[in-house]
Amino acid sequence: MAVADPTLRLERALVRAGAAGAAAGSPDAVAAHSGFVIGCDEVGRGALAGPVAVGLCVIDVRRTRSVPKGLRDSKMLSEPRREELAPIAASWGVAHAVGYASADEIDRIGISACLGLAGKRALTELHAVGVDVMAATIILDGHFDWLTPALSTPLTIRTQIKADRDCASVAAASVISKVARDRLMIEHDSIHPPYGWARNKGYASEEHRDALLERGATDLHRRTWLTKLFGDPSRAEGSAA
């Protein structure tokens, strides 16, 4: 069955509701009154190596009419197609950003906290280029709000299951963050070629697992995850040159 193209239907509904609520004096709706929506998605959550990344794409719903042709959740696109769409998605939005949390940070504070940390860093980038993140609604893919606990000032966040599939702003964030993280892992592949990161991007492919068994971990590996995977603390503590 064909999958429908992502749309701005939810983004527009949130802005309309925010405008109506603001007119009625509802403080909870004021953030959406600006017309800005920020799509948010993560990539790299399940990898064994490399950072987790959170992408943001800012859309001015009142000025944006069309969605880039072929835009999809990054998981539904081939790598060449993602590479083609990433700059289109980036220029389509008002602004975009990608934040990261490292493998070491994941080991120290856990994946959920690092999703929030990466998201906070991406929001800081948007703020630095003049985006008023306080006057926007963030659409967060999934049903769990991992972003709010990382923020010192609460923002307006809407969780939405399958937002990366259905909401164009989140699909754009998905593509932008996936391509950015993939390129980072490809760069590291030249430093640690036996792990095949140019092909597996840090995920647990057979090639990657075999290299871990033979050579041990690098400084880009999530060592707490390797302990769980192999059941052998010495494997996680190994250091590849």
Score class of each variant (00 low, 15 high):
104 D>P: 02
40 C>A: 11
50 G>C: 10
67 V>P: 03
70 G>A: 10
59 I>P: 03
80 P>G: 08
44 G>R: 02
56 L>C: 13
39 G>L: 04
101 A>V: 09
59 I>H: 02
85 L>M: 00
84 E>W: 00
45 R>Q: 15
65 R>W: 07
75 K>G: 05
61 V>T: 09
102 S>Y: 06
68 P>D: 10
106 I>Q: 01
62 R>T: 11
52 V>C: 11
57 C>A: 15
99 G>A: 11
41 D>Y: 03
54 V>Q: 11
73 D>A: 00
74 S>Y: 05
75 K>T: 13
101 A>T: 10
57 C>S: 09
67 V>W: 05
105 E>M: 14
42 E>L: 15
90 A>H: 04
96 H>S: 14
99 G>M: 04
48 L>N: 08
73 D>C: 01
84 E>G: 06
79 E>W: 13
54 V>A: 14
71 L>G: 11
88 I>T: 13
69 K>W: 13
56 L>V: 10
96 H>C: 12
76 M>G: 07
69 K>V: 13
44 G>D: 06
56 L>S: 08
61 V>E: 05
95 A>G: 12
50 G>L: 06
79 E>A: 15
57 C>N: 08
103 A>F: 05
46 G>D: 12
53 A>T: 02
69 K>L: 13
39 G>C: 07
74 S>T: 04
94 V>P: 01
67 V>R: 07
73 D>W: 08
105 E>D: 13
70 G>L: 13
